[in-house]
């Protein structure tokens, strides 16, 4: 029990550190996902403390997982557009895909 609480704290710190220090946007997004997982873990461990098992935090975490994937999808789409705008010149390998380099 305590070990999962400690795990949640450590994951939280790792995610926070990555979120603040990573330069690469994709890496920052991965850190954000680790951070959300830490919060979910805390909620589920707390839910397990109660007798009987409290289903409300479980439902909240299920909701949160879907929100996290929505956030990730929108952020990834934005990151891709940013990368297309800022790429100095299209690489030869990228020109095999039509519609990618004329941003």
């Amino acid at each position: 029990m305590l070990i999962y609480l400690a795990l949640a704290s450590v994951l939280f710190v790792i995610g926070l550190h990555g979120l603040f220090t990573a330069r690469n946007l994709l890496r920052r997004l991965l850190s954000l996902n680790v951070l959300t997982t830490a919060v979910f873990l805390l909620l589920v461990v707390i839910a397990r403390k109660a007798t009987p098992l409290d289903p409300v935090p479980h439902a909240m975490v299920l909701t949160g997982i879907v929100i996290a994937v929505s956030t990730t999808a929108v952020a990834l789409a934005l990151v891709e557009r940013i990368a297309l705008r800022h790429s100095p010149e299209p690489e030869p390998s990228a020109s095999t895909r039509p519609g990618e380099e004329d941003a």
Partner: peptide, 24 residues
């Protein structure tokens, strides 16, 4: 960072258990 993680763990350990299980 280790102190922060330890403090978070200690704070989480003292959180009260939620009480909606019986109601649900």
């Amino acid at each position: 960072v280790m102190a922060l993680a330890g403090a978070l763990t200690a704070a989480a350990w003292q959180l009260p258990a939620p009480g909606l299980g019986a109601v649900a």
